[in-house]
Design a protein around this nucleic acid. Sequence first.
DNA 1: TTATAAACTACATACTATAATTAGCATATT
DNA 2: AATATGCTAATTATAGTATGTAGTTTATAA
Lengths: 72, 72
Amino acid sequence: MNKSDILEKFGEKIKEYRKQKGFSQEQLAEKANLHRTYIGMIERAEKNITLLNIEKIANALDVKITDLINQQ
Amino acid sequence: MNKSDILEKFGEKIKEYRKQKGFSQEQLAEKANLHRTYIGMIERAEKNITLLNIEKIANALDVKITDLINQQ
DNA sequence: TTATAAACTACATACTATAATTAGCATATT
DNA sequence: AATATGCTAATTATAGTATGTAGTTTATAA
């Protein structure tokens, strides 16, 4: 995976909201029912996340999916 | 893959915008640099699409990603 | 201050599940 | 007829899971 702009922005948003809520990667992973290291990979834009997992993370962070995707 | 709500809504949106622009699945596939049958699978919610392909399709349809994801 | 322990994160694998690509044929629509 | 879509199935690429280790940060004790 070579990092793309959209994945990097997405990762930054996850990290931003996660910190804002005071969660560790591990805590977020548990809430989203995903693995700890996977959350790290997403934040570092190392994985091309699928829509179902985007939904899981958005729910865990209690934000809308559209909040995680910045455009224009 | 058992179909989920979010994937079904996403597929419907793709189809809706595609028709609105007067594209066939094949034409959209070509614009997005994806395969014809894959577009069909997405519209039928048979695949859990990744963020990079969501971006490709949004660009091909000339809409924002957030236009393809309806929430509340 | 210094050191040291604890929690957190980065990163390197390796493995498993499944997304993505493709071809072929059937059915539908015009 | 021609064009478009549905659907099966098989293969390849990669997303997702997991373990272990090293480095970082943060709090607390000395």
